[in-house]
Design a protein around this nucleic acid. Structure first.
Length: 336
DNA sequence: CCAATCTGACGTAAGTCCCA
DNA sequence: TGGGACTTACGTCAGATTGG
């Protein structure tokens, strides 16, 4: 049995019932260099810890855990002895976490999550039967390019899974990946290089000129490119900024007469007009297919950019997301 | 192999503390 | 002062270990 935390051997006259000790529990301190006694640590204690931290109450935690309140309290006592810290102290009606509890809570949560995903679930993953909704962030045109092949792959291999596309500004992407609001971000996101973010390059792309008539398959001279009126697409993504900056650096002035926020606005503006638009190759190919627009090379060397898939390390090993990333790599990945 | 013993977790009952 | 919340002693039980 564990040593009782409190010196509570009672006088016989007290008939076995204890006088309550001081509120501040004299927890046995673990000395630096003490080795952990693995025989005393029990993962269930971490589950109890996480639940008390979540509820701020031993009683509420015990209800959530399906234990009696004393059993939960006893579990907390064992964890206190193991870690050498009170972990929670009663402040008013709440059990407030100590500094140590605040420090270890995210670690404990991540551990429990990983155990659930990597230890308890593996082997049970079957894309044919798993019901899951994948949440992917991409641009409007990204939706048109990435989603159709992805939906076909899902229908073929994972009929129970569904897809939700989110439009999230580049600045909020990292937080959305970290919180699990989205599972994956697809596109050109050079800023998305946070410590916890993993990435995989799918392919390299470049910019081309989109014009109103499909017959217009020529290479524009720099003069004509500059003379014709332009439509600029100002999407929240980074690649439009990149090409606009590139042309500025090359000192290629253009007459930008229209600025729009979506690629999908281009067909109606370009059709039958003199307007030109500089867009990524995949966007141009898509719009040529659906709207009979003309696609030409730029009259100067185009900068290139890489289309990637990004995800957070928290979900690096989740089987369903591993499977999804592999499907995306198979569908869109190509060595350039 | 089986009975005795040990160990540890849980529930009950009850004491204490704190706040409204 | 009563009620809610936490803690502890003690009894019980189940699983592990030990010894014949």
């Amino acid at each position: 049995m564990l040593e009782p935390i409190l010196a509570s051997k009672l006088p016989a006259a007290n008939a076995g019932r204890v006088t309550m000790p001081q509120r501040t529990l004299p927890v046995r301190r673990r000395r630096r260099g003490d080795s952990v006694d693995w025989q005393k640590i029990d993962l269930n204690l971490l589950v109890v810890f996480a639940e008390i931290a979540r509820c701020g109450s031993v009683t509420e935690a015990s209800k959530a855990l399906g234990l009696s309140q004393p059993a939960t309290s006893y579990a907390l006592q064992r964890l206190r002895n193991t870690l050498g810290d009170p972990l929670f102290v009663k402040v008013g009606k709440q059990m407030q976490p100590t500094a140590r509890a605040i420090a270890i809570e995210p670690v404990v949560r991540e551990l429990l999550e990983r155990i659930q995903v990597e230890v308890l679930r593996p082997g049970s993953f079957d894309p044919r039967t798993l019901k899951r909704c994948f949440r992917i962030a991409m641009s409007d045109i990204g939706e048109s390019y990435f989603v159709p092949p992805l939906v076909r792959a899902l229908q073929e291999n994972a009929p129970e899974m569904s897809l939700q596309v989110h439009s999230i500004s580049p600045r909020q992407l990292e937080a959305a990946l970290e919180s699990g609001e989205i599972d994956l971000a697809l596109g050109h996101h050079p800023d998305l290089v946070g410590a916890g973010v993993h990435q995989q390059a799918l392919f390299t792309s470049r910019f081309v000129v989109l014009s109103g008539a499909q017959s217009e398959h020529k290479v524009f001279s720099i003069d004509e490119f500059q003379k014709r009126p332009h439509v600029d697409v100002c999407t929240p993504g980074r690649n439009q900024e990149m090409i606009q900056l590139h042309m500025k650096q090359l000192a290629i002035p253009r007459q930008v007469q229209v600025r729009v926020s979506r690629f999908l606005s281009l067909p109606e503006i370009l059709k039958g007009s003199e307007f030109l638009a500089v867009v990524p190759l995949e966007v141009a190919q898509y719009l040529r297919r659906v709207a009979n627009l003309g696609v030409s090379e730029l009259p100067f060397e185009s900068p290139s950019f890489r289309l990637m898939q990004h995800w957070h390390s928290r979900f690096q090993d989740e089987p369903a997301l591993k499977w999804l990333r592999e499907q995306i790599r198979l569908q869109f990945g190509r060595s350039d």
